[in-house]
């Protein structure tokens, strides 16, 4: 893990919570952000007596400054570990996700946020569950677990089960998956997670998005079902392949944008700068 792989994230809205952190919070407390003055009787905190404001006050009351406290948030990684995530050109897509988790660990620790993980394939994978912790080493535990795990067939059912734990909670959720399952119920799952800021991370290897250039016969086996198909790669098929990917991308983006989300595409390598830029754009 290199410290270079680090990104900065921020949320577009204020977060609740009393635990001090680095995100603009909605709770009042020890922060730099001035909100209002209150009478000393209402808020008996003589350390924050504002002499100037008290002198200016027509009623002669003693006024106390009230500030907003910056808060920390729980950050969760919801990782799809189904067999299709073990597919990849040079290395499995799960390893790319693990790289991202490593970078996230550093970033979250610096921001003072707690970091946890839920994993799913067709059902929730409790063996890969990591509760939200503020710890420097938690990310490496998570990424090691992701690199070594073997998943079964994937499905939306696992994500549904995981979303029950996170429903109605604030925070930041990275939903890392290749979304290689029917998308009908994805909208309902995302609706459960509206209180949190969800970053859908679409993990697609370049082998999926770009058909091989040479004309050949491809004998393909589905990573999840084991079904085999022969595909004759030729210009017509390549065009259809690209169209199919584009159609899938449109379907996904339609679901996400309807809920104010923007997907982040993860290719063969994790690019931390691109993710920083993503947050700059989203939370601008």
């Amino acid at each position: 893990m290199s410290t270079l792989h680090e990104f900065h994230y921020r949320l577009p809205h204020r977060v609740g919570g009393w635990r001090p952190g680095s995100h603009p919070g909605s709770s009042l407390g020890g922060g730099q952000e001035f909100v209002t003055h209150q009478r000393l009787y209402d808020r008996p905190d003589p350390r924050r007596l504002d002499i100037r404001a008290s002198l200016r006050d027509l009623r002669g009351e003693w006024l106390v400054r009230v500030n907003r406290q910056r808060a920390s948030i729980p950050v969760h990684v919801v990782a799809d570990v189904s067999a299709s995530m073990s597919f990849g050109v040079h290395r499995p897509k799960l390893h790319v996700v693990a790289d991202f988790v490593d970078a996230l660990g550093t970033s979250a620790y610096r921001a003072g946020d707690s970091l946890g993980m839920y994993a799913f394939d067709r059902r929730e994978r409790l063996d890969l569950f990591v509760p939200a912790l503020v710890s420097r080493g938690v990310a490496s535990i998570m990424s090691a677990a992701l690199r070594t795990c073997t998943g079964g067939a994937g499905g939306i059912e696992g994500l549904q089960a995981v979303s029950q734990h996170l429903a109605g909670r604030q925070g930041l959720i990275f939903l890392a998956s290749d979304f290689h399952w029917p998308l009908e119920r994805l909208g309902a799952v995302l609706d459960l997670l509206t209180h949190a800021f969800v970053v859908p991370m679409v993990v697609w290897s370049s082998a999926e998005t770009r058909p091989p250039e040479e004309d050949s016969l491809a004998l393909l086996q589905d990573a999840e079902t084991g079904a085999q198909r022969t595909v004759w790669l030729r210009p017509k098929l390549r065009a259809e392949w690209r169209q199919a990917i584009e159609r899938r991308r449109e379907q996904l983006e339609h679901i996400f944008t309807a809920r104010g989300l923007r997907p982040f595409y993860l290719g063969d390598e994790f690019n931390s700068e691109a993710l920083s830029k993503y947050f700059l754009e989203v939370a601008a």
């Binding site: 597919f87 290689h180 990573a223 098929l237």
Partner: peptide, 16 residues
């Protein structure tokens, strides 16, 4: 055989 993530993603290819 080459593994592929999700065959349903690919276009139907009767010739293949």
């Amino acid at each position: 055989v080459l593994a592929f993530a999700w065959l349903n993603l690919l276009p139907e290819d009767r010739l293949g």
